[in-house]
Every structure is written in structure tokens, then in C-alpha cells.
Computed example of a mutant assay.
Amino acid sequence: MDPPTLPVSTFDVDVDLGFALFFFFLLCFFLLVAIVRCAQMVLDPYSAISVTTHQEEQTED
């Protein structure tokens, strides 16, 4: 007699592929954020500069 066989799962998960896809999409997300940030700086470069760098520092005597 053959031993009873368990039903075979039709949903096999490849863990390595899952990690690779997760980090790939994470990398694409950061790339998209960097592209948007760079485009904002190109369109309006003076908004990225801190106002305190243009002011003279008060010296206490």
C-alpha cells in the first residue's frame, strides 16, 4: 500500500524571487522620489536654499 499523499499546493512561493522583487520595487520607488526632487530643484532652485544662509549673522559685542 502506498502512503497517503498530501494535497499538493498550487501556490508555490519562491522566497528569493520575492526578496529580489521587493528590493527592486523599493529601489524604483527611491529612484522616482529622487527624480521628482531633482525636477523640483531644477524648476525652482532658490526654494531649496535655506533663508538663514542669506542673512547676516548678528555678532554680539
Rank of each mutant, 00 (worst) to 15 (best):
P4R: 01
F30W: 12
F22T: 11
Y46N: 04
V33D: 12
P7L: 01
D16S: 12
T52N: 11
L27E: 12
L32G: 02
S50E: 06
M41Q: 11
G18I: 05
P4K: 01
Q55N: 05
Q58H: 09
Y46Q: 02
D12Y: 10
I49T: 05
L26A: 01
S50C: 04
V36N: 01
Q55R: 15
M41C: 09
D61L: 10
Q55P: 00
V15W: 11
L32A: 06
L26G: 02
L31N: 12
V51F: 08
L31A: 15
Q58P: 01
D16C: 09
P45K: 05
A39M: 12
V33H: 09
D14F: 00
F29Y: 15
S47K: 07
E57D: 13
T10G: 04
C28V: 15
E60I: 14
D44G: 02
L6R: 04
P3T: 05
C38N: 11
T10Y: 06
L6C: 04
L6Y: 00
F30P: 02
D61E: 11
C38P: 01
L32M: 04
H54P: 03
Q58D: 04
F30V: 14
Q55K: 15
E57W: 08
L43S: 13
T53E: 11
H54I: 10
F24A: 15
D61N: 07
F24V: 04
P45Q: 08
F11I: 01
I35R: 01
L43A: 14
H54S: 09
F22K: 13
D44W: 03
C28M: 14
P4N: 02
I35T: 06
E57Y: 08
Y46W: 13
P3N: 08
E60S: 07
F30E: 14
F22I: 12
M41V: 14
D44L: 03
F25N: 06
P7R: 00
P3E: 09
V15T: 09
Q58L: 10
F11V: 02
P45D: 06
P7T: 03
E57G: 08
P45V: 09
V51L: 14
P45A: 07
E60D: 10
T10P: 09
D44T: 04
I35C: 03
S47R: 04
T59Y: 15
P45N: 05
A48T: 12
R37H: 04
S50P: 09
